[in-house]
Amino acid sequence: MDVTMSYTTQTVWTWWIAVYLYLGGLGAATLVVTFLTDMYLKNHRALVLWGAFSGIAMLSIGSLMLFIHLLDPLAVLHVINPLVLFRQPHSWIAWGTQFIIWMMWWGLFYALPYLVQSERARRVPLLGAVLRLKVMTRLSNRCCLRFHKTIGWLATINGIGVAVYTGLLLQSFPAVALWHNPGVPLLFTVSAFSTALAYLLLLLNLVIKNEEDYYIKVFYERTDTMLIAGELVILFSFFHYMAAGNESAFRSAQLLWQDMGWLIGFIGLGLIVPFLLELKGVIKGWASRLPIVTASVLVLAGGYLLRHYFMYAGVYAHPW
């Protein structure tokens, strides 16, 4: 067929899906990093509680985004049922939903012992009452503590699953070259962990503020610097892939690489500036917290912009 193509972007999945993808990746990676830190770097109750619960909150808000935009929210029951994986093993949303659900459970179980022990939590009106229940203590001791590492790893696996899934989901839309390539899961995963580290740096710098956590912070900064560097490399290869790719890719490239929001907002302020700030931190260190806090905020904002622009810049080529 000789056809004349028209190129068009989509208005089906807009910012609310970008938020879903963003909070999904961020939330899951936050849990993963928190638990791994807790398991292998330093036992850290505050970090676990903050990380786990904000991670779960992010996952919930993200999922809520998806949920309230469903045409028929009642029918969501079909995907919440774990058996969906037997019926729809090829659907990443099915996997993603299960990852998210189980991630939240494992996250909760992992954090439960810390919560049960937390004096502050026990003083919270309703929550305290629940925590004081015998079942809770029993659950906490007999299950959560006993299998703490196993649960931690289950959470980690699910969390990585969620982060990867956000990319795989886009990859499963074959019409759009920007999405339909193996770089996307990689990019989204790296970005998820980078934003999670930024988020945890914020926590450590602004909320938990514990001098002993210096090493953790340095470790996070270093890792984040590497992740950002990795992200830049992936984006660089994306640029080349798109510029010399098919029409869909080429048109996406035109949209992205001529857009100030993408160039300055995401790449400039969301990646390069924090990279330099953190690099200096890693090499020479900063006198104040401000540069790292700034870098973290920028990384978090950049993380959203990445999803946002990715959703909007996907170009469909229609032969009519």
Partner: peptide, 14 residues
Amino acid sequence: ESVRFANDSIGGVA
């Protein structure tokens, strides 16, 4: 015309 994609058409190629 392109109902779903109405707002952001990038022009066709002849």
